[in-house]
Computed example of a mutant assay.
Amino acid sequence: MKYQDSLQQASEKASQVKVFLQRVRLAAHPVNYAVCYEYISGHNAALCHIIEQKLAAQAPLDDFVMADLYSRFLTEHSPQQEQLLQDATGIATRVAAYTDVAAEQLEQYLQQLDGSVLQLQQHTVADPILRDIAQQIQQSSVQFQLSQQQIQQQLLTANQQSQQLRQELEQLKQQRLLDPLTGLYNRLAMQNQLDIWFTEQPERRIAAIAVDLDHFQRFNQEYGSAVGDVILSKVARKISSYVQSSGLPVRSGGEEFLILLPDVDLRSASEIAEQVRRGVEKLRFVSSRNKKTLPKITISLGVSVFQPSENWYQFLGRTAAVLSLAKQRGRNQVASETMLAS
Rank of each mutant, 00 (worst) to 15 (best):
Asp5Ile: 01
Ser6Leu: 06
Ser11Glu: 14
Glu12Trp: 09
Glu12Gly: 00
Ala14Gly: 02
Val19Ser: 11
Leu21Thr: 03
Cys36Thr: 15
Tyr37Ala: 13
Asn44Gln: 10
Cys48Asn: 12
Lys54Arg: 15
Leu55Ser: 02
Gln58Glu: 14
Asp63Cys: 01
Leu69Asp: 08
Leu69Ser: 06
Tyr70Phe: 12
Phe73Val: 05
Glu76Gln: 15
His77Met: 13
Gln81Arg: 11
Glu82Leu: 09
Leu84Gln: 15
Leu85Asp: 12
Leu85Gly: 08
Thr89Arg: 08
Ala92Tyr: 03
Val95Ile: 15
Ala96Lys: 09
Tyr98Asp: 14
Thr99Asp: 06
Gln108Glu: 06
Leu110Lys: 11
Gln111Lys: 14
Leu113Phe: 11
Ser116His: 13
Gln119Glu: 13
Leu120Trp: 05
Leu120Gly: 10
Ala134Asn: 07
Ala134Val: 03
Gln136Arg: 15
Leu146Asn: 14
Ile151Thr: 13
Ala158Asp: 04
Gly183Asp: 03
Ala189Asp: 01
Arg205Lys: 12
Gln217Tyr: 09
Val227Lys: 08
Val230Arg: 10
Ser241Cys: 01
Tyr242Phe: 15
Gly247Glu: 06
Val250Leu: 07
Phe257Asn: 04
Val264Gln: 07
Ser268Gln: 15
Ala269Thr: 02
Gly279Ala: 02
Lys282Ala: 13
Ser288Phe: 03
Asn290Asp: 14
Lys291Gln: 11
Thr293Asn: 05
Pro295Asn: 02
Phe306Arg: 14
Thr319Gly: 00
Thr319Gln: 00
Thr319Phe: 00
Ala321Val: 06
Leu323Asn: 01
Leu323Glu: 01
Arg329Thr: 04
